[in-house]
Design a binder for these strands. Structure first.
Lengths: 349, 349
DNA sequence: ATGAAAGCGCTAACAA
DNA sequence: TTGTTAGCGCTTTCAT
């Protein structure tokens, strides 16, 4: 009567013993490097034994011996935010079959900080992706593995980055709004020491100026990325903006736009008759709310895919892919239209 | 002139050499087991050297030597779906400080299959979480590490599970609808060989029967989890349902409810006057759409937290926590109300 | 074509 | 309290 051991996992040595070959041969077969180095018959015998014994490569040991890791770390301010979910999805598309995607969830708080990054650095990843990092975080960041920035507003500290190219979309937006007869436009954004976030307002401002419109100097900057914060802020600020002849408001985040729309409903402000509203992200829900939201689509999934490929390059040959840009595009929906009381020329329609 | 080597990573041996102690002591200090086994002065010297040299534990080697893994695998049909994002977030809450959360992205396709699971099993995880698995998948699933099911409709194959308890919420829903005067209610759901999904309709049916209402026999079952599929299906089926006196429709997924609402808008069906609409999930956007959606909140985040703790237990002491249930709760909003033409007693209000 | 052997960096007995 | 030692399972020379 043999004592049943607690199901020891099958190792390459077991396979080798069963076949009557060495572990080296097993290793070669498993890693697909057997071509011309292991006799075909031996290969077949090994493969048969693997199937029969139920052998699975111990990835930990493999990683240690070969000095290569198998994980990619993904850091984002909020895994719950659809934008980052979609980036993650695209990322998985590009590299999930070769690497394990580790999502680092920020420990308490609305954004990830040095502590979270430290945890990530302890993870021995093959590569690291920092999504929408704050500038302050990057200041003293020292990479310990190929690291790529996403939506950081451009390369920082010599780290490659993948970003959204807003130029065309914002030019389109400016043309769209001014074409409808809007001349005074307000901005309600996110207060963050992030170049990517600040860039939105600046680039919009420039695009508008080129078309003779102007961004109202009173820009609301929220510190909390929620719909209700935006609703409150808009309710407070709207009298000022209305008094200044503002007929359109652009929101630096889609959630803010939702809040503004709700506030409009409560205040009885007609959208788009009294006010046109524009968001940033084009979440899947923006076509469902009422009125459907005009939005700048940040191409989150494509962004993730692009980042995945770039990271693959970084890890593979260490070739720094510089920084790539994925174009955003404007999606026009019912929340924008001609202002009811155009200040300049009368609106068509 | 010394040749600059390519920045070899600092190892425990380097630290030991710098301090003049053995690697064992370093290991003990790093793993926090030095209490009473290493002299305090030595500990301090080691810590100083670690900081000075920038030593970081090689988690791969550590895992190999100690035989413990550091990763938790998370499998979900669609990482983009807010429900699973929120589950993941809760999961991270419970165990991100001790484990690395690996998200396995399904390779092409709307749900994860054996191939994805195989990849997961190759990952040498300390634990595995399968969210909303299909039954067919579980049929021949052989766990290789502590595995927990989430939203599987109960334990399967001896695997522990964490589930949503719908009973109370559905009883409330039945009371809510019948109380408003609804007697004929339709169901539009997701076709999946998943107990958790099928259970929704069955339990609702039972709850309604207890209150004298009835689920219309024509149940629409979609195979695609999108808003537009629901819109099309509802547009096709509404004449039939209306003819049968249906005054409320319950949707097995929130996205479906969005599609139904849109269809109603197009068809000119008044919500909730002509038709009350109910969803499942209570996504954050459901309070923003028009009219705001009444929904059964599945407590996704709490579900994730509960699962995280259960998995911790499974990994830790191997104690199978059986299966736990997290109660859902009904959130009533504007999309439900008294039917305009009550078939039975006249509705109040 | 094949296998013996030397690590990868760490942990955990065990000896001192 | 400390150091020595033997692995963990695999990869990778390097002989044969």
């Amino acid at each position: 009567m043999t004592a049943r051991e607690p199901a020891r996992r099958v190792t390459a040595r077991d396979v080798a013993a069963a076949v009557g070959c060495s572990v080296s041969s097993v290793s070669l077969v498993v890693s697909g490097k057997a071509q011309g180095r292991v006799r075909v018959e031996t290969q077949e015998a090994i493969e048969a034994a693997i199937a029969r014994l139920g052998y699975r490569l111990n990835t930990t040991a493999s990683a240690l011996a070969s000095g290569t890791s198998l994980g990619i770390g993904f850091l984002s301010p909020d895994p719950t935010n659809p934008f980052f979910s979609m980036v993650l999805d695209g990322l998985g598309d590009a590299l999930a079959d070769r690497y394990a995607l580790s999502v680092l969830v920020p420990t308490g708080g609305s954004d990830y900080d040095r502590g979270t990054v430290r945890r990530a650095l302890a993870g021995d990843f093959a590569g690291l992706l920092l999504a929408s990092p704050s500038e302050r975080l990057l200041d003293d960041f020292v990479p310990t593995c190929p690291t790529l920035l996403l939506d950081a507003g451009g390369p920082v500290n010599g780290l490659a980055s993948v970003d959204v190219d807003l130029r065309e979309a914002l030019a389109e937006l400016a043309a769209h709004l001014t074409g409808l007869g809007h001349e005074r436009i307000a901005y309600l954004g996110f207060r963050r020491d992030k170049a990517s976030v600040q860039g939105r307002r600046h680039q919009l401002d420039r695009a508008l100026r080129q078309r003779g419109a102007v961004l109202h100097p009173t820009t609301v900057e929220l510190t909390e990325l929620t719909e209700s914060a935006a609703q409150t802020a808009f309710t407070d600020t709207w009298p000022l903006w209305r008094g200044a002849g503002v007929t359109a408001v652009v929101c630096g985040d889609e959630l803010f736009a939702y809040g503004v729309l709700r506030s409009c409903r409560v205040l009885g402000v007609g959208v788009p008759g009294d006010l046109s509203v524009v968001g940033f992200d084009n979440l899947p829900y923006s076509s469902l709310i009422d009125p459907p939201l005009t939005s700048v689509d940040l191409s989150a999934r494509l962004l993730g895919q692009t980042a995945g490929r770039a990271l693959l390059g970084l890890i593979g040959d260490g070739a720094v892919p510089g920084s790539s840009r994925v174009p955003a595009r404007l999606v026009v929906r019912g929340s924008t239209g001609a202002p009811r009381r155009p200040t300049g020329q009368p609106a068509a329609r």
